[in-house]
Design a protein around this nucleic acid. Structure first.
Lengths: 121, 121
DNA sequence: GTTGTCCTCAACCGCAAGGTTGAACAAGGA
DNA sequence: TCCTTGTTCAACCTTGCGGTTGAGGACAAC
């Protein structure tokens, strides 16, 4: 858990933290406000926020005695880049494999053995 | 750690597992082959693969006594969708905020810059 | 058969993560 | 001043994760 990518993925592995990110995408919020929907203590939520902050996903600005939490969307790019890189690489592999198979089947009927694409929801 | 999204994020939070995914994007591989570069036992790597498999990121096909590991790229879409959704939402917020600020600038004197908080709604 | 290779299962260990409660701190309001 | 609100810190507990070693199962080669 040393590099940023690990911290970001790890931070988003928790359902509560993902939900907090989802809500912070709509509007900034204080800790109490954030803690309200969940069945855990405010201190637990404060810990979750610390994790998100250390991952670079949120920032807290001191404002009076409140500490509004703000979503930092830039870190998302880090993940997206990582994901897209290897997904594209894998898809490229399949494409090449399909080419090879197609070449082997030049005399035969062109059966499409391509992998299912973009299924999940 | 019940839903798939949590499993995927959690699986990719580990540097070794991310590296295995990176290598599997290039070519399928056996467990020993995968374990070779790392300074851990083969059993540990086997456990890592189990985590990746339960996250739906890889599949293992029985082939003789070997069990080649294959990367399943579809699950990446699950993450990308989640990430893009909230990033877009956050960016939309900033865009609207900028519009509001621009509107305030056009209607008021540009010396009024003390109110810079990015408040909710 | 026996051996060797590849892999997984089981039991264990150390440590960090996520939860709790109780106390403390900072700042506004009475 | 004292009280209330919002938040964090500290200590603790339990669970799960990543690592180990040792044993065992499946299959190819001999």
């Amino acid at each position: 858990m040393d590099d940023q990518l690990s911290r970001v993925f790890s931070a988003l592995a928790d359902p509560i933290r993902r939900d907090m990110v989802a809500r912070l995408a709509v509007a900034d919020a204080g800790v109490n406000e954030l803690a309200e929907p969940y069945d855990v203590s405010v201190q637990a939520v404060s810990k979750h926020l610390k994790v998100l902050e250390e991952a670079g996903l949120v920032s807290r600005t001191k404002q009076a005695q409140r500490r509004p939490v703000h979503l930092e969307a830039e870190v998302f790019d880090l993940m997206t880049k990582w994901i897209e890189r290897y997904r594209r690489q894998a898809e490229e592999r399949y494409r090449r494999l399909d080419d090879v198979l197609a070449e082997m089947d030049t005399e035969q009927s062109p059966t499409d053995t391509r992998h299912t694409e973009r299924g999940a929801s």
